[in-house]
């Protein structure tokens, strides 16, 4: 007998969400990233991870290197991911708007998440939205906010009502630390 999650069949239809977690390496030698796929029940499906080293010289602007490194990391993760998520979620303080507005084009919506209390820049091409979970959160959608009756938004709603809007990023962080801890 399958686990009796609420409306199990409907949840299966909602698909999977991809949580992109990026953080600087602890020794500041580069960046680590993970693409953590979970289903609407919060069950882990895939965990793809990689890291990249960046040079510390005056030859290149650090901002450019950062952008380039994040792009390469992200594409390397996407290239290995066998499943297509319904949407990609990332934290606005880790992923700038250029990554998906300019550098990588996705056929699925991207949602950058930030606490409403934080002032973070976003692109004019992103659509701002708001959601109330434990605290108010700003959502920055690209290319646009999915319609209210869309599966993507239903999936997001399902995840947020189950406390799974931010929590999977923490799990992805735990996974990255486990992989790359010395």
């Amino acid at each position: 007998m399958p686990i009796p999650y609420h409306d199990a069949d409907e949840q299966n239809d909602l698909g999977i969400a991809g949580y992109l977690k990026i953080l600087p390496a602890q020794d500041e030698s580069g960046y680590q990233a993970a693409l953590f796929l979970i289903n609407a029940r919060g069950e882990p499906i895939e965990f793809t991870y990689n890291r990249i080293e960046t040079p510390h010289t005056f030859l290149w602007r650090q901002a450019d290197i950062h952008r380039h490194a994040i792009r390469k990391l992200t594409t390397s993760l996407f290239s290995l991911c066998p499943k297509t998520p319904r949407l990609i979620l990332c934290l606005a303080e880790e992923v700038s708007s250029e990554l998906f507005c300019q550098d990588i084009q996705l056929s699925v919506p991207v949602c950058r998440i930030a606490p409403a209390i934080k002032a973070l820049p976003y692109s004019a091409t992103e659509i701002q939205d708001r959601i109330e979970v434990e605290e108010p959160m700003n959502l920055f959608w690209y290319p646009g906010r999915p319609p209210d009756d869309s599966i993507e938004l239903k999936l997001l709603h399902e995840l947020s009502t189950k406390g799974l809007l931010i929590e999977p990023f923490e799990r992805a962080l735990i996974g990255l630390r486990e992989v790359y801890s010395d």
Binding site: M1, G30, I45, N50, T54, W60, H68, L77, C81
Partner: peptide
């Protein structure tokens, strides 16, 4: 710029099935 990148790794986690 040349960046030194690891080979990405992937872990598929079988579903917790209890069917």
């Amino acid at each position: 710029v040349k960046l030194s990148e690891d080979i990405p790794q992937r872990l598929s986690i079988p579903s917790a099935i209890l069917s």
